[in-house]
Amino acid sequence: MSLGLYLHRVSPVHAVPAGAKMLALLAAGTGLLLFPSLPVLSGALVATLGLYALARLRPREVAPVFRLSAFVLVPLFALHALVSGWEPALVAVLRLAVLMLLATLVSLTTRASDMLDALERALRPLARFGLNPARLGLLLSLTLRFIPLLATWLREIQEAQRVRGLDRNPVAVLVPLLVKTLRTADTLADAIDARCFDPEEPS
């Protein structure tokens, strides 16, 4: 399963530079906020699905993303429809769905390092205000790298606690997870140092 992680393909969507894709995502988000009509949103949804096809992503690879989106969007639609009627609910949910799918498409078709390089370049002017783009870029890349690792650790700790009869105790899972994460962070900091990372020098 891939969830928001790069999938390599030779496709026109993959070939677009990371900065351009991120700007397009920003523009699409703004556009959908400014023109929240059903025809525009329906057109945007169809176009987004078209981009998925153009990116040559296989249905089974993106199915988990769609399932997770539905997990959020279906209850949201029901709640919204109950409070303010079906049409505003459909508009809100369609807008969110298109944005989620577009953001996922960007992360599935763009290497994390390319996105971070683009982000670093964009944030460079903020260095004069004390923001360190290289450090921020590394922080974001480590976050991406650690999502699957945290999921693995969570599963391992849950299994270990289940053996001890502690499967209904969230503290028994969260405390070891936190300790493991902090210990790993120490070693990882050493590993990053050992590979000559220097946040003071732009790459």
Binding site: R111, A112, L142, R145, L149, T184, T187, L188
Partner: peptide
């Protein structure tokens, strides 16, 4: 532990 040394999400990166 290589998991504590791999910094970026894909092999190439």
């Amino acid at each position: 532990n290589p998991d504590h040394q791999i910094v970026l999400p894909t092999v190439e990166e």
